[in-house]
Design a protein around this nucleic acid. Sequence first.
DNA 1: CTCCTGGAAG
DNA 2: CTTCCAGGAG
Length: 221
Amino acid sequence: MMILSVSNKIFFTTQILNWGSDNLRSFPWRINPNVYKAFISEFFLQRTKASQIIESYNKFIQIFPNINALLLYKGDFTDFFKKLGLIKRATFLKNAINSIRNNEKSFRDFKIADFLKLSGIGKYSAHAIICFGKNIKLPLVDSNIIRIFKRFFFLTNDNKNHKYDPIFWNLAERLLPEKNFKKYNYSLIDFGAIICKPLNPHCSICKLKENCYNFLNHINQ
DNA sequence: CTCCTGGAAG
DNA sequence: CTTCCAGGAG
């Protein structure tokens, strides 16, 4: 069971966009974004806070400023991920680059299905790369967005409630605005990191509290 | 389903 | 001390 009236949907999307207008964070990969920057940033961002990866990301982009520079390199990437944990990402990235190198299609023409075939890239990352890098309307679902959905809308645990549950992807798609989808996705990510945090969310200053199921029912405050 | 990982936050 | 983090692979 979930509460998803048309008015509630409009309220949610509008308020997320309004909040984003004043609070969007600035990161190197968000400045003049392209598919390459989005692709690299998603590797660094997996299970890692954005503030933690900035130094490693900048170093990486400085050495490999574009896809052609990266494809020429056949060495190791361990040093870039060593201080961040999840060292496996270095191997995933290397394997992904091999796949790109062996693909007849140009990296710039890669679509969702092409990215999904790369190691280290799942549905979330593929959508994020295409949406942020190519301005194409695609829904995003990660652990932060699931948390926001579960709190604001009334999502019960009927369907096992795990992260691959299509209910979250369907909801994300229905909420996505036609025009400002990119800003909305950035806003949703930042809203989850700054306001609707896992612990001690800032409900008192939240623009969505008047219609938030958890807030109205005094849950997670 | 489990595992990956160091580091920040509480 | 424990929980959590722009997920994905096996």
